[in-house]
Amino acid sequence: MPFATPGRENRTGTLSDHDRFSLAGDASRWEPPGMPATPLLDLRGIDKSFGPVKVLHEVAFTAYPGEVTALVGDNGAGKTTLVNCIGGIHPWDAGDFLFQGEPVRVNSPREAADLGIDIVHQDLALCENLSIVQNMFLGRERRRGLALDDAGMEELATTTLAGLSVRTVTSVRTPVASLSGGQRQTVAIARAVLWESRVIVLDEPAAALGVAQTQQVLELVRRLADKGLAVVLISHNMNDVFAVSDRIAVLYLGRMVAQVPTASVTHAQVVELITTGRSGELGLAR
């Protein structure tokens, strides 16, 4: 007599949980389950030339909400050009730019800002002679009648900084000139958060900082993503990339050679991708 196969009702709770689990996720998708299927930012086949020099070759790049996507590559690989295309500073020559799955055209930084894309440049673009709150609202001051709504702006700036768990800034009326490098970085990031940006691109946020400040900025970057924003982090420091990123995109001589989950690669593989454009199965075809 053949062995009786146990009926469904005989299965234990954990097994039926397992069934539910496998039904929910589509095995063919390589993204981790539970992630939104549409990326917030989806670039396909982006080409960009400066005169005779072709800087980007059919670059594909995606950024998901709630994730930190690290953009790495050697000097001259095209990281900054790609970011400038995302931010509307350079128009691209060919390719598709999808925001939340909808094709859009980004012709100026203001159009990018309207979509909710904010770039924190390496030089931060803060005015040293103005206070933290003045910097955060620069060009977009709130008014109450004819006068500026100083109290309202201060309150909003304070709650934004508190919402990012920033405790190192004592008063939002402090002039930026008296802040340390890490604090300035924090203000520049908080400015992007204040305007409810949905994609924040950070260009080398820890380049000029000491260890303690770098660690604080990294934790801040992580918190931004955990709040549901899509964060793009450009960094040369592999350690920072591995500390906070969920996904690593590698540019090599203007080509996107790999975009992989951080959990599936090693330090050595990423370094190999950056320097030679391939690593085992990953990267450019031989």
Partner: peptide, 18 residues
């Protein structure tokens, strides 16, 4: 371990991945 992790994340994650 916070400091150790932030200072050696590349090694921690590489060892985890392998």
């Amino acid at each position: 371990l916070r400091d150790i992790y932030l200072g050696s994340a590349a090694q921690v994650r590489s060892a985890l991945a392998t």
